[in-house]
Structures are given as structure tokens and as C-alpha cells.
């Protein structure tokens, strides 16, 4: 829902088969418990204030759309990155798509949270992709569970398996999120573990606040402790230093680096 686009015409209220939409003083509101995601309101909305996230598309059509940009892949030496959400949620489709792109000789990358069935991934996808960007958030299983609601053992196991099955294809990526992953201890632990596993390449992803506007459109709350501004290059650089010290990192007095605090 994009409230600033809504002109309160009421078309969505009328058409909703589940009586999930109502108009208020600030435009249409939606009762997400009743909403079945049928998309009727998005279809009828004259201003595109209501939007259904995602669309139904079959393999041939998607491949056709992706191939339109082939000249850009050629010119830049790039290709197709399959991201999300989480692409491995649709493992069969992902595998079929990767196979088709491989036939077209297009370079592919999969971005994943790493939380998937390794058996299904290696059966469907692993042989048909060129690179995997693999998110690593935390080493400590309890804290991972607290932050994401999912255990991380399977993630680390999958990372190890991928490194074994197709060495060099997987690049771990660590999102640096203040208050969550961004602690000296967590990053130090991750760095040490990756080193043990022989994974020398890694990427640190600086925090960005894009989630806020998305949460608002979905009527959800963001944790109050997350900053509203993106992480600066300076701060990221210092987290890089932390990471690089890796296993040998001496415990710092402060566990957290504050945005734009002067470097000590």
C-alpha cells in the first residue's frame, strides 16, 4: 500500500471479496488477517496505490524477458542475478531457470540466505550456476535464532558442503547490521570460521535502511533500534578491519563501532 498515492475512491473496498479493505481518513487500510492476497484491489486501483508483491510468470516468459537484456550482459561482462526474497524457496523453478540460462550461455549468480535443503539444491541448481552469494549473519546459534527466527546450523553446513562440491563458486556475504551482526565478537568469530573453512573471499554488505519504507507499505513495525540512515564508507571500513583481524582479533573494549565515531 502506497498511502500517498491513494485518492480514497473506494474502488478497492467495493471489489474486495473478503471484506478486508476499509477506507479511513488517511485512505484505504487493509486487514491483513482477512486478506487472501487475491490481488483484485491492486487490479482495480486507479492510482497503483495498491500493489500485489510479485507476479505470476511462467518459465518461457521469464526467459524471454531476461534475454531482452542480453546486449547489456555482453557489454558489461555481466549476467543474471537471482535474488529475492529467497530464490531457493522455489527450488524447482530456480533450477529450471538456471538450466535455461546456462543453455543461453548467460552468466548466473544466486543470492541466498543459505537456509535450504542441500539435497534439493545440489540436484536442481548447483551444476547450472556460475556463482553463489551466500549470506552469513551470525556464528552463535542462539543469537541467530533470536534475530532471524531460524537456526543457523543448516546454513553453515550448507556452506561447507558447497565449498566442497564446487570450490570457488561460493562467496560468503555478511550484512553488517548495527545491533545485530555488527559486533566485534560476531564478525571476528565469522571471520575465524571462514578462514578455517578455507574461504578466503568474502563481502561485507553495509547496512541500508530500505526496509523501513517496505515495512510501512506492509503495515509492519521495524525494530526501533535500527538506524534510519545508511552505513557510511568510513564505518564500513572499520568493520572491515575488525573482520580482517579475524581469529587473531584482540577483544576490544567496546564491542560495537558507532556510526561516524572517530576511529581510535
Amino acid at each position: 500500500m502506497y498511502p500517498d498515492r491513494c485518492m480514497a475512491c473506494g474502488a478497492c473496498v467495493e471489489i474486495c471479496p473478503d471484506n478486508a479493505v476499509a477506507t479511513g481518513p488517511k485512505g484505504a487500510t487493509i486487514d491483513r488477517k482477512r486478506c487472501t492476497g487475491c490481488g483484485e484491489c491492486a487490479r482495480i486501483c486507479p492510482t497503483a496505490a495498491r500493489e500485489l508483491v510479485g507476479q505470476w510468470i511462467d518459465l518461457d516468459e521469464l526467459v524471454e524477458v531476461l534475454l531482452r537484456d542480453r546486449p547489456y550482459y555482453t557489454a558489461s561482462g555481466g549476467g543474471v542475478t537471482l535474488s529475492g526474497g529467497e530464490p531457493t524457496v522455489q527450488m524447482d523453478f530456480l533450477g529450471a531457470l538456471l538450466r535455461r540460462l546456462r543453455e543461453e550461455e548467460i552468466h548466473t549468480v544466486v543470492e541466498t540466505s543459505g537456509y535450504f535443503s542441500m539435497a534439493a539444491f545440489s540436484a536442481n541448481c548447483l551444476d547450472h550456476l556460475d556463482e553463489i552469494f551466500f549470506d552469513i549473519k551470525m556464528l552463535n546459534p542462539d543469537r541467530h535464532m533470536d534475530a532471524t527466527g531460524r537456526p543457523n546450523e543448516v546454513i553453515w553446513r550448507n556452506l561447507a558442503a558447497l565449498q566442497k562440491l564446487r570450490p570457488g563458486v561460493v562467496t560468503p556475504r555478511v550484512p553488517v547490521i548495527p545491533g545485530y551482526t555488527a559486533t566485534v565478537r560476531n564478525l571476528g568469530e565469522i571471520a575465524a570460521r571462514l578462514k578455517e573453512m578455507g574461504l578466503r573471499r568474502y563481502t561485507l554488505l553495509p547496512y541500508h535502511p530500505f526496509g523501513f519504507s517496505k515495512a510501512k507499505r506492509l503495515d509492519r513495525q521495524m525494530p526501533a533500534d535500527l538506524p534510519q540512515t545508511p552505513m557510511g564508507a568510513e564505518t564500513l571500513k572499520r568493520w572491515h578491519d575488525v573482520f580482517r583481524k579475524g581469529a587473531g582479533a584482540t577483544p576490544s573494549t567496546a564491542d560495537v563501532i558507532r556510526e561516524s565515531a572517530p576511529a581510535n
Binding site: 537484456d69 546486449p71 547489456y72 555482453t74 557489454a75 558489461s76 555481466g78
Partner: peptide, 10 residues
């Protein structure tokens, strides 16, 4: 430059 290249090739 890559974007120009692709646009021209199209």
C-alpha cells in the same frame, strides 16, 4: 559506457 554499448547494439 557498457550501457551505451548495449543500447547501440540493440
Amino acid at each position: 559506457a557498457h550501457t551505451i554499448e548495449a543500447y547501440f547494439r540493440q
